[in-house]
Amino acid sequence: MTEPLLQTAAVTLAYDERVVVHELDLVIPQGMVTAVVGANGCGKSTLLRALARLMRPRGGSVLLDGASIATLPSREIAKRLGILPQSPLAPDGLAVEDLVGRGRYPHQTLFRHWSAEDEAAVESALAATGTSELRARPLDELSGGQRQRAWIAMTLAQETEILLLDEPTTFLDLTHQIEVLDLLDDLVDAHGRTVVMVLHDLNQACRYADHIVAMRDGRIHAAGAPGDVVDAALVQDVFGLQARVIDDPVTGTPLCLPTGRRADATNRRRARSTGPDPRPSGAEADRQA
């Protein structure tokens, strides 16, 4: 059997004394979208940082083609594995095209920094993310969705087979969230890239991921195809949330509907309103609001 492209072997991750991820074994399926989900503080972003060797494991290792990434030269890793952190920094006034061009750094040398391949990679990254016409615009003048697409273009220009993204849809409005996820989907389809992303939204994870890794307290609670692992029990265990899980009418993947207490409240109010009009007058309602 060939070695998996990217995997962890008993990896333990800690900040100072606080252990966040415990001896975790994980195999990332090649050429697919993997979504890591879990409650806040379960260690999912930390795991992603370790996969990208932004963090040194306390124990165990992260293996790229079977070799520990701690032993590989940074530049070689940078040609194979790209990561987009949650809120990356850029200086004011940096043009989209210049940002995307910087993704080529690992492929360049002092006197070879705009080869035909560099140019082609930047052009195709701009085209794939629909940012070609924004190329001359400063990043700080773009909308949140445009900016995120520009950053994704930067990681695409890096031309790595593996792409790691930390909550790529956070801070985006719904339209742009879907736009970004569709774009990642296309990358896997058209270029056979391997995508691993941390996602906040379980339903988006079910829709867009081929493989879900559900984490709880620094351990893998369940992993597999969304249809196989996501059910009401998992939502209860991982998020501590009562929910019903139904089939998504659009994609057929699991769709999680949190129960909450809202249904009861609606029923109570409906019962009240059928009585001798207990509703507050319009003026009172305004005051209460």
């Binding site: 932004l54 530049r75 940078a78 990356p88 850029a90 910087r102 993704g103 750094y105 690992p106 920094h113």
Partner: peptide, 23 residues
């Protein structure tokens, strides 16, 4: 001027710079 190329990548923050292969 040579180090300017690394400075360019450092402008994007430590994480991105590391991801792009810079010490």
């Amino acid at each position: 001027l040579a180090l300017g190329r690394q400075l360019e990548v450092l402008q994007l923050g430590d994480d991105v710079a590391r991801a792009l292969g810079i010490g």
